[in-house]
Amino acid sequence: MNIKINRQGSIESFDIPFQSTTLLKALFYIKQQEDNSLTFSSNCRSGVCGTCAVRVNGKEVLACSYNYQEGDLVEPLAYHEVQRDLKVNKQKVRETLKNSKAWLQSSQQAEITQEQVELTQKQTDCILCDSCYSSCPVLELNPNFIGPFALTRAYRYTADPREGNIQSIVDTIQTNGIWDCTLCGNCTEVCPQGIDPKMDITMLRGTSSQFGYNDPNFQAMDFGFGGF
């Protein structure tokens, strides 16, 4: 089996002398037996720590959860500063969590039903692997876009009955936030946890309307006919 790895722009080819297994095992084989300098990130080997996301043939996967195929091209995540080979700077991207204030703003006592827990059960499965962020075409145009995972996380807290100040989150995600999303659904497609950020963003738009916010794109599209 042969795989190709994008290392700082140059494509290197490696032969793996065993049948397809996880991509992470192949990367370890290369690092330990062939080339100590191959650099990538990983940790739990079981798809919960979110460390080992890369792109294979242009699509985001967790290296520990993907079985490689002959000729695969492995590349670092997009819209992240590449530190070396497949290792990227996630710290900067984590700033989006601060920008979206994705936490419980003000904790209040609440009776919570199992149905309410299940409403955001998927969203709280997020492992912060950044796959969705890497797949998001909006970042090509607007590097300040908060991005899918931080918005999903913001939604998760707005939907928590313990949240006593939904408005604070809603106010925060208006600029470079929910209205910048094109609802293309790439994020939903690549999420290894089956989360649907596109739907979460749609839900946040609904909540925002309740707080008096409108889609600024609609206003921009008002051609003098009184708008929509």
Partner: peptide, 17 residues
């Protein structure tokens, strides 16, 4: 942990399962 927002599963009586 509840006050921070940990999403524990619930019983039918709204308690932590």
């Amino acid at each position: 942990l509840e006050s921070l927002g940990v999403p524990f599963d619930r019983t039918a009586q709204y308690k932590v399962a």
